[in-house]
Every structure is written in C-alpha cells, then in structure tokens.
Design a binder for these strands. Structure first.
Lengths: 215, 215
DNA sequence: CGGGGAAAGTTACCATGAGTAAGATAAGCA
DNA sequence: TGCTTATCTTACTCATGGTAACTTTCCCCG
C-alpha cells in the first residue's frame, strides 16, 4: 500500500484543552468513553484506526488512552470483550427457551454471522492482529468465546453420557470456523448468511449430537 | 510491546557491495532465494520479522526485495503458497492410496497440525495480518486452501448423490477450524495433536459423510 | 572504439504510528 | 502561602514500510 496517498489523514489534533492538570482535579473520562470512541472511529475509518485517532475522537490525547485502557493490544482485547458479549446476547436471544435441535443450531450460527456483519470493521479490527504478539492475542480472543462454549459442551456431553473430553477441541474448532466463515461472508463472495448458517449446522449437527449407530 | 527493549536489533546492514549496477549485469538472486531467506529470518526472529532483516539475510537491500517479491503483503502471500504446498504434500503422503474413512480423516487432520507445528513461526507470520488490508489478505490466504478443498468436496458429494452446494461453506469452515486449532496447539495449552486430530474427526465425520437415517 | 542511455544496484530519505519522556498546570496538605 | 503530587498536553524517540535519488555497469549505436 502506498503511504503517500493519505486522503484521510486530516485528523486535526483537536484537543482544545490547556496542558497541565485540568480544573476539577481530573477528566471525567473512563475506559468506557474511550472504547465507545474507538468503536466510532473503527466504524468510520476501518480496521486501521490509529490510537491517535481514537484519542482525538474521545477528545483527549494518546497518553490518556494508555493510562485508561493500555496498549493497542489491550485496546483490541477490551473491544473484543465487548463484541463477544454482544454476540452472546444476540445468540442468547435467538436461542431463548428453545431445545437444542438442528434448527436451533442453524439459528445460533446465523445469529453469529449477522452480528458480525453488523460490526464488520470492529470484527476485522479485533481479529486482525498487530503482527507481533499476535499469536497470544488472537488466541486469547478466541479463548473468550471458546472457554464458555467448551464448558457448555462439556456439561451437555456429560449429560447425554458421551465423552466430554472432546469439548475443548470442539469449542476452538467452532470458534475458528465461525471466524473464518464470517470473514468469507463479510467479503461478500459467499451465499447469504442464512444458507451459510444452514450449511454449518448440517456439517456439525450429526457429529455434535453423537446420535448414531456405529462409532 | 515496549520498543526500547530491542535486544535483537543489532541487524548490521551487512550488504558488502558497492552501490550501482553489479559486475556481470545483475545479481543472481531470484525470488526463491529471498523467500528462503525470509523463512530463515522468521524461524529465527519470529513473526515480527522485518523486510530489512529479510533483505540482510539474503545479502541484498530492501528495494531488491520489493523488485523481486513485492510488498510485505505479497511476501506473506508467497510464503503462504509455500506453506500451503508443503501442507498438501504432507497430507497427501499421509493419505496416499487410502479410502476416505474416519481414520484417514483423523490422520489428515493430524498431518496438518504436525506440519503447522513444524513451521510455528512461519504459520504465525502467514496467518497474522499486517493491520491494514488484513481482511482480504487473510481471506485470500484461506482461499488458497479452501478452493481446492471445496472442489474436492463438491465432486465427492455429487458422487454420493448429496447436495454439493454446501461445499464452499464447508471448505472455509474446515480451513478456519484448522487454523484456530493449530493456534491452540501451537500455544501448547491443548492436548497432544493426535488427540486433537481425533476430536476433529469425531466432530466432522458424521456430518461430512452424510450417512444417516434422518435428515 | 567511444560515448550516452538504460538497467540494476545501494544509500538516504519520508511518512506513519506505537509508545514515552518532559513540561505545564491545578489540587491538596502542612 | 508554598511545596509536593497528581494529571493532563506537547513533543519527542524509535522502528518499519515504502520510495526517491544517486551510482555504477552494461550494451548498443555511431
């Protein structure tokens, strides 16, 4: 990517506040305000949003972002938490009070995909590493979704009298699968989310349920 | 990550060659030599290897890397091709002349995981985006594996008289699943690759095969 | 043969962005 | 009232992707 075409780097440092400690002792800006600002910037500028841009959007300066939220990796982590909890909410709603069937599995997948589509750029920011400690970062993000899922799978497998030892692998597998398919759906070269969700359910259901004669 | 602890940034610019066109007309350094050098650097310095480091390792300078291979994204792409073809080789060996069974599926998965383990840092480099056009980049990497897989699945599903329309989704799903699980295995918080591969086969086999009574 | 592009390198540079040190101002306590 | 401390902004450093400018050799044409 050429760096000389910077059509979007106006980014006036619009912090209209004097240096030094502010009147009142401290700014009334917590991590949440910054994270909200970060989400707005990411939605507007895409996944390459810089810390400076986030700070400007929040009406503060970079060091405050570091003081309140931490490094870029920690910012991504915090945003990942938010996105994950929104996914949980969305999927919980779509599953509320239903028994676990092939149909509800498909709806679960679809709810996930639709939520990601609703947070395109945030998803890309959060799943796109920063080249460096990306390994642990990406994994810990996945862990956020995989661990609860693994617990649920474990309990369920235990309940139906089947080996719960597969739960960990299955959880990471499902999270990875959803992430990749989300990317594919975002890119718009895939069928519609409904079909994709149905295909995923078709692939997973029979293995998950473990209802079979041989094996 | 603190930038001031640079214990590994000695990186003497050891290109002991005069400026200007070299005797003999041109350097005898093709893309392959550079890619080999890149792999060595990545193995040594991890996924954060810089273009300068790659150039130094190859005994040339940065602009030559750009002339021969292209931007960082294109470098990652080329390395992805290599890794992908190595995976194909490894898996083909492990599947040679066998029929498609649950056992061979597990072995396929295991061969994948083991190959990734054998290329830890390269895998992380190649799957870890560069913050920017990461979206398309990551997807095109996945595409490299997903497209052939989709073709195979399509033919096979067609052959056994079942809907081949699921092939695309399944291919991306399986690639994403393997990527995430590989990350988990690399991080060493997972069971051994053999068990993980077996769990994956257990999850996928019944859905893939599509041999069931209800459905 | 000799000279002037064209080709093919290296060096030196620019832009950007993460992260931090240094400077400025207000609070708060003795 | 003055000194210390807390909390900001400004101004910097450093690493890195990417490119422009300079340098040397080839090679072809007269």
């Amino acid at each position: 990517m050429k760096q000389t075409d910077h059509m979007s780097s106006i980014e006036m440092s619009s912090v209209s506040r004097r240096p030094g400690r502010p009147r009142g002792g401290h700014l009334d800006i917590g991590p949440d305000v910054i994270l909200d600002a970060a989400e707005r910037v990411i939605r507007r500028d895409g996944a390459s949003a810089s810390i400076d841009a986030v700070a400007a959007e929040a009406g503060i300066t970079k060091p405050i972002v570091y003081a309140r939220v931490g490094s870029r990796a920690e910012l991504a982590n915090a945003l990942a938490d938010r996105l994950a909890s929104r996914m949980v909410t969305a999927t919980r709603e779509s599953m509320a009070g239903r028994t676990f069937t092939r149909e509800s599995l498909a709806d679960f997948m679809k709810a996930n995909l639709v939520t990601v589509l609703d947070h395109r750029e945030l998803f890309l920011y959060v799943t796109g590493g920063s080249t460096d400690q990306t390994a642990l970062s990406r994994l810990s993000l996945a862990e956020r979704s995989a661990t609860p899922l693994a617990r649920a799978l474990e309990r369920w497998r235990d309940g139906v009298g089947r080996d719960p030892g597969v739960a960990g692998t299955w959880a990471y597998a499902m999270v990875g699968m959803l992430q990749m398919v989300s990317l594919w759906v975002i890119d718009d070269t895939s069928p519609d989310p409904g079909s994709v969700a149905d295909h995923l359910a078709e692939l997973l259901w029979w293995g998950l349920a473990g209802e079979r004669s041989s094996g």
